[in-house]
Measured scan of single mutants.
Amino acid sequence: MDVFMKGLSKAKEGVVAAAEKTKQGVAEAAGKTKEGVLYVGSKTKEGVVHGVATVAEKTKEQVTNVGGAVVTGVTAVAQKTVEGAGSIAAATGFVKKDQLGKNEEGAPQEGILEDMPVDPDNEAYEMPSEEGYQDYEPEA
């Protein structure tokens, strides 16, 4: 019985440690998101679009440190934060509304985080759909 109880105690310690790591990862992701939003706020009209992409990228980098179902929630929060940063930029006159959601080359930025393969159960990952990809044929 002692062996059984000791095993359960060790398992509990492992769960607590994993929860603490997840909590730490979420806190880091939130900190990076805040950094990115402050970065966007300090940019001029020309830099705002690039700044919004930076927020998304920093958040995406930190999301990889967070495991399990938390990833889905962090990704949703990050996307809403990026959308909010863009709205703030438009409201303050840093950028025109028609410039939001495009990178410096004018290509749409939507789907940055949505296409990231995420499995809350950590069982399997699927690649994003290939609808947006084109076949590449090298020139002879």
Results as ranks from 00 to 15, higher is better:
E13H: 02
K32N: 02
E35A: 05
D121Q: 02
M1Q: 00
I88Q: 03
A17S: 11
G7C: 15
V16M: 15
Y39R: 07
V77Q: 02
K34A: 10
G7H: 04
I112N: 08
G31M: 15
A27P: 00
E61P: 02
E13K: 06
V40D: 00
V82E: 02
V70T: 02
K80S: 07
G106R: 06
D115M: 08
V40H: 02
P138F: 07
S129Y: 04
E83Y: 03
K10M: 14
A91V: 12
V40K: 01
K12L: 13
T22I: 11
V74H: 01
H50E: 09
D115A: 14
A140S: 13
Q79M: 08
E131K: 07
G51T: 11
E35N: 11
G106V: 05
Q24E: 05
E105P: 03
G101K: 10
G93R: 03
E105L: 08
Q24M: 15
Q62L: 06
N122G: 02
A17T: 10
P117N: 12
A91K: 04
V66H: 03
G14Q: 15
D2R: 01
D98Q: 07
G7M: 07
E110L: 13
K96P: 05
K32Q: 03
A29F: 15
E131V: 10
M5D: 00
V37M: 12
E114C: 15
G31Q: 14
E131N: 09
K97S: 11
D121M: 08
Y39P: 00
P138Q: 05
A90S: 06
A56Y: 15
G25D: 02
Q109H: 10
E35T: 09
T54V: 10
D98C: 13
G132M: 10
K45Q: 05
K97F: 13
E139V: 10
G93N: 05
A124V: 14
G7L: 14
P117W: 11
T54D: 01
D135W: 06
V55E: 00
Y133L: 11
G132Q: 12
E57H: 05
G101W: 07
K102Y: 15
M127Y: 10
V3A: 02
G31K: 11
A140D: 13
K45C: 11
V71Q: 03
M1A: 00
P117I: 05
K32S: 02
N103D: 12
A78F: 14
G111Q: 11
G73V: 13
A85P: 03
V26G: 00
V16K: 08
G14N: 06
Q134A: 06
P128R: 10
E28C: 06
L38F: 10
G47R: 13
Q99S: 10
N65M: 07
T64G: 06
F4S: 00
D115F: 12
K32V: 09
K32I: 13
V40P: 00
D119E: 12
P108F: 05
P128M: 12
V16Y: 11
Y125A: 03
E13L: 02
V3T: 00
A76S: 06
K10F: 08
G68I: 14
E28G: 03
K80L: 14
